[in-house]
């Protein structure tokens, strides 16, 4: 492939070519960063050194486990609530509730921290509430968009096969779209992962990566802050990949190509 083709719009490139391009561009970005970083912004070399240092401490692992436990709990509760709201939205009486939850995306969490502090009993519950409240509207939005995109003929086919509306809902929406639910989880996990550092910064009693980040910033340990940011970023990419693999494994038909 000629170099000029990399700059042609709509050019289809192979997976291998993409990875070569990504690698070269990544190296170039690191080089530019290394050469332009001043005293204040740490160079990639300093960040790498800080990462190695952090990875060698027990303090990091205990905080990592704390963050992973919190996100697992938060995601679990959020998924359960979001699925319930999304599935119930197909019953007319619950539709306004689902629409309201979607609009809650525009509610800023900052103004609600005091409210959640009042209604929760401890720091853990405060973090969990904020996390769930922050994630659920985005989850429901994505899930409703999956449901809205279902071809009405699928429901009609169920009726021609003598399924009642509950069975049609189970077959088409719940079982039939579970692969897309996992994709929604994958896409929204990024929001949850970003939020976790924010809520851990609000209540630092239990620690976590967010707490580590806030402390590093507080003590102007910029190398460590960048190192933690990089670790958070890499973990996010790893989870994104892992959820993609799990989706392909659980639902093999999602990887199939349409023949015609």
């Amino acid at each position: 492939m000629a170099i000029q083709e990399f700059f042609s719009p709509l050019k289809v490139i192979s997976k291998r070519t993409f990875f070569i391009l990504a690698f070269v561009e990544g190296v170039m970005a690191l080089l530019i960063w290394q050469l332009t970083a001043g005293e204040l912004i740490p160079t990639p070399a300093r960040v790498a050194t800080a990462i190695i240092g952090i990875l060698g401490t027990d303090y990091f692992y205990s905080n990592l486990v704390q963050s992973l436990a919190l996100i697992a709990e938060g995601m679990g509760i959020s998924i359960a609530i979001a699925l319930l709201v999304a599935y119930l939205s197909l019953i007319p009486v619950f539709k306004p509730i689902a629409e309201f939850v979607i609009k809650c995306r525009y509610l800023t969490l900052t103004g609600l921290i005091f409210f959640f502090t009042l209604i929760t009993s401890n720091g853990h519950n405060l973090k969990l509430s904020l996390l769930v409240f922050g994630i659920v509207p985005f989850f429901v939005t994505s899930l409703l968009s999956v449901i809205d995109s279902i071809n009405v003929q699928e429901y009609e086919m169920c009726r021609t096969l003598r399924m009642n509306s509950w069975r049609a809902l189970l077959e088409v929406v719940i079982i039939g779209r579970f692969d897309l639910v996992l994709e929604v989880i994958r896409q929204n996990f990024a929001i949850a992962w970003i939020m976790i550092t924010a809520v851990e910064g609000i209540s630092m009693s239990e620690g976590g990566l967010g707490t580590m980040l806030i402390k590093s910033n507080k003590f102007i340990n910029i190398d460590n802050a960048f190192a933690i940011l990089t670790i958070v970023f890499l973990f996010g990419i790893f989870f994104d990949y892992l959820l993609g693999v799990i989706r392909g494994w659980l639902f093999p038909y999602t990887k199939l190509q349409l023949l015609s």
């Binding site: 071809n151 003929q153 699928e154 009609e156 086919m157 009726r159 021609t160 096969l161 003598r162 077959e171 088409v172 079982i175 039939g176 579970f178 692969d179 639902f251 038909y253």
Partner: peptide, 15 residues
């Protein structure tokens, strides 16, 4: 349910 339907785009359960 009395009448079967075969749509133009051959709807089946893709899962």
């Amino acid at each position: 349910g009395d009448v079967g339907v075969v749509y133009q785009n051959y709807i089946l359960f893709n899962h």
